[in-house]
Each structure stands twice: as structure tokens, then as C-alpha cells.
Amino acid sequence: MQQQMILLVFLILAGITTVVFTYVYASSKKAGQEKQGMSNPLRKRFWFLLILFVVLGIFASVTIPKSPYFLFADETPKKIVHVSAMQFAFILSEKAIDPKSPSGEPIELPANELVEFRVTSLDVNHGFAIYDQSNTLITQTQAMPGYVNRLRHKFKEPGKYNILCLEFCGMAHHGMRSSFIVK
């Protein structure tokens, strides 16, 4: 699960940071008059920066092409689901949703096929986040009034998926949810 990996990487990096800071602090505590400071600080600084720059550069060039805006761009979706978010419910329909009398229907989606969610909002900003059966966030987009965001995804596992609102939208924000089935 990607989130656990992210947490692990973070904890390792945070641990390294703590160790380095503690080490530097301890070296100051032990320092006497004769051992003065860091040798060649400018050179070390340069290398430190260069390594950081290269690492971040690699990271950026690897991750940016995988951004959701570029995913499945060349394929035609097998199914399209219209989503209208409103305080405090999601309306899902395979037909277009009329903002004047919005109504939805239960949704069933095919597994391993490309699905496109066309997400908009009828009132304020909402989040449209899809959670799998183990309650892990798998993908999301924002529901913004006046705009339609197209979220494309292929569901690998059949089962029930939950939708939660991930943008604070008022007093019943935490109760705003829906679901669909993948077969």
C-alpha cells in the first residue's frame, strides 16, 4: 500500500534528520578549543546542495508524468459516471444530471475497465475521494462549481467502494458519502 510506504519513507527521513541534529549538537558539547568547526564548509555545502538537487530532480521527473492529469489519456472509457456533489450528498448517475432536478441511481462498474467520473458541484467546493474495501484512499479529485473534472480510473478489485467528501463543505461535511459497486 502506497500510503504505508510514504509513512515509512517519511519516518526514516525524519529519523535521519533527528540523528544528524543530535550528532551535531553532541559534537558541539564535546568540542574543546582545539577542534574548531567544520573543515571546508563551502565545499561540503556545495556537494550537499548538488546531491539534494539531483535527488529532487530525479524525483520530479519520475513522478510528474504519473500525475492524474496524464493517466489513461489515450484510451476511451468503457463507462462514464456523472457526479454532482451537493451539500451534503453525492449524486451519481450514468446519465447526465440536471442541476435543476438532480437525481441519481445506484452505480455498478466493470472491473479492469477504464471508467471516467465527470465530477462537478452544484453548490460549494467538495472533494470526491474513492476508498476501497480496506478503507484506503485510492484516488480523488475536487468537485468545483462551474467546472467538470474528469477522473479516470481502472478498478482492479470487485467489491464495494465508498466515496467521501474531502473538502470541508459545512456542518455535515463528515457525513457526506456515497458508494458504488465494481463487478
Binding site: V20, V24, Y25, S27, S28, K30, A31, G32, Q33, K35, Q36, G37, M38, P41, R45
Partner: peptide, 9 residues
């Protein structure tokens, strides 16, 4: 780091 490392403070 430079200010602290092996420096009596």
C-alpha cells in the same frame, strides 16, 4: 550545522 558542528557554544 556549520555554526554548531564541533564548535564550543
Amino acid at each position: 550545522f556549520i555554526a554548531v558542528y564541533r564548535t564550543e557554544i
